[in-house]
Computed example of a mutant assay.
Amino acid sequence: MRRVRSIAGDSVNLLLYRELLRCDDSAEEALWRLNPQLAEQGPVLPAGVGIVLPELDSRSLAPTTVSAWD
């Protein structure tokens, strides 16, 4: 597991995207499980908060196509 520090104005989604190039529900859930104290910081994190990043399986970043005619 890798440890990082937040930048002023970070949100959990922004931090996940910047560090892991993912901000989906499973990545966010894994981060909250590793960092339960993070909720005390509020939706916008102050600078310098230590965060443990989850180790996630790599996923295809290709979006799924949705058709109105399916």
Rank of each mutant, 00 (worst) to 15 (best):
P36A: 05
A39R: 10
G50Q: 12
I51T: 12
V12E: 12
I51A: 04
R33V: 00
W32R: 06
E28I: 03
D70K: 06
E19K: 07
N13I: 06
N35C: 00
L53V: 06
M1H: 11
T64G: 15
P46Y: 05
P63Q: 10
D10H: 01
S26R: 09
R18L: 07
L38A: 02
D24C: 02
I7M: 04
A8W: 02
S58R: 14
L20H: 07
E28L: 06
R2P: 13
R33P: 00
V12T: 13
E19H: 02
N13Q: 06
L15T: 01
L61W: 09
T65C: 15
L53W: 02
S60R: 10
V49H: 08
L34D: 02
L15I: 00
Y17W: 04
E19C: 03
P54K: 09
R33E: 06
V66E: 05
L45N: 01
I7P: 13
R33W: 01
D25Y: 08
R5C: 09
A68N: 13
A8V: 04
Y17D: 14
S6T: 14
G9P: 02
A47E: 15
L61S: 15
R59D: 09
N13E: 11
T65M: 12
A8F: 01
M1W: 06
Q41M: 08
W32V: 07
L56H: 08
A27I: 01
L56T: 05
P54G: 09
P43L: 07
T64H: 10
L31D: 00
P43R: 05
N35H: 01
G42D: 07
E29A: 12
R2V: 04
L53T: 03
